[in-house]
Simulated scan of single mutants.
Amino acid sequence: MRSTIHIAVATLVACCAAGCGNLENAPFRVGTVHGQLTESDPAVAMVSLVGQPGVSSPVDADGRFTLEDVPTGMAELFIIATTEKAARVQVRVLGGQSVQVQPVAPTSAGFLDLHVKTTNGFRLTAAEASVEGTPFQRLLLDAKGRLRVGPLPDGCYTVTVTALGFPATQVQDCAGPGEKKELKVDLVVDESLLEQGCQEIGCEEGLVCAPNKKCLECFGNSHCGEGLTCKGNRCEGPGPLCAPCTGDWQCAAGTYCEVLPEGSAACATRCGGDDDAPPSVQALPDDVGSAQCAPGFTCQSGRCLPDAANFAGCHALRRMDAPCTDDASCHELGLLEGRCVSGACTAPCATDLDCPGSRRCVDSSAGRVCQAGT
């Protein structure tokens, strides 16, 4: 009988020291982290654990946070303080204990500007992006496959992009303080979708679904803009100055399809030096090069662009003659000194040389303005 009791006691001791003791030791496998941000916006601020974004905490009006159930050992905090500031902080967590970190001063955050395209021109449907190990999960891209991800603390990140009909694609890049870096991602269509073609999923903006189930720029002149014709499934020029373009073939002779400061591409001539030289190596100053530009245009960084005194860029010049109710409605379209004359937007002028295209400088109720020639 006594030996039986001894065996039972020994078994109980062994159980407590091994598997049965796991329940008692569980609290000592995690700890708590307390801290305070020197600057924060409670509407957006949060603190999470790098690699385990589910372990997170909000930030109160005083910038304080409490992160619970943090695994013991070295950990790294992922901190979003404001829409423009963030931080990453390393901390050692002791089991069953609370750790107080030094006050955290967030710094300028970085951003990754995603630009996702498909190799076949198929339309992106339900496209999402996730940043591994961070709270940025399953973020929706817009119809053009664009998304700004951030604020991100200084560091390197793995981004996973998914879309209907495309296998998940991973890319890696780093974002420094205050940096806004473009991250281009090309999605390769799934074989099953490739067989169905664009008739099933459609094409991205600017392309049409051809009878052969491929996404093409055109397969008829009706798919091209004014003044362009479809040649070899491509819309070709000549387009006038400031016309939107995708290549030199959509611009008139002597003009080039240039990416402009406003971010879009349009037909433009070069100035200030050798016409065949790229803008970065133009030799003459802009005030001299302006003599080479058409009326209404001036030489700006080696290219003839709409006069910056009147137009905020090519997109604004294209809004000449747009319907309006007052001068302010023209200003909103980028015509900086715009006038609303007879219900249409125009620009002020002193001579015909201030007016682009075939317009002439004429008298009106609003003073001398550019209007279409007769």
Rank of each mutant, 00 (worst) to 15 (best):
S3I: 11
A8Q: 07
V9M: 09
T11M: 11
L12R: 12
A14V: 13
C15W: 15
C16F: 15
A17L: 14
G19H: 15
A26V: 11
T32A: 09
V33G: 01
V33W: 01
Q36G: 12
P42L: 04
P42T: 04
A43H: 13
M46R: 15
S48M: 09
S48C: 08
P53C: 06
P58Q: 05
V59E: 00
G63D: 00
G63L: 01
T66N: 01
M74D: 14
I80T: 07
E84W: 11
V89D: 03
Q90D: 12
Q97Y: 09
P103M: 05
T107L: 05
S108F: 10
A109E: 00
L112H: 00
D113Q: 08
N120H: 12
T125H: 15
A129H: 01
T134A: 00
G145K: 03
L147E: 02
D154G: 00
V161W: 00
T162N: 04
A163M: 06
L164S: 12
F166A: 00
A168M: 03
Q172T: 13
V185P: 08
V185R: 03
V188L: 09
E200Y: 12
C203L: 07
C203D: 05
E205T: 15
V208C: 02
C209T: 03
P211G: 02
N212H: 12
K214W: 06
E217I: 04
H223F: 04
G227T: 06
L228A: 06
G239M: 01
L241R: 11
L241S: 14
L241Y: 14
C242S: 11
C242E: 05
A253S: 11
A253H: 09
P261S: 08
A265C: 01
A266L: 05
C267Q: 07
A268E: 07
D275H: 13
D276F: 07
Q282W: 00
A283N: 10
A283C: 09
V288Y: 03
V288P: 00
G289W: 02
A291W: 15
G296Q: 04
D307H: 06
N310P: 00
C314M: 08
R318M: 11
R318P: 11
R319G: 09
M320D: 13
A328Y: 10
G334W: 06
L335N: 12
T346Y: 06
A350S: 10
T351R: 15
D352P: 13
L353Q: 14
L353V: 12
D354S: 02
G357M: 02
C361R: 08
D363E: 14
G367F: 12
V369T: 09
G373N: 13
G373L: 09
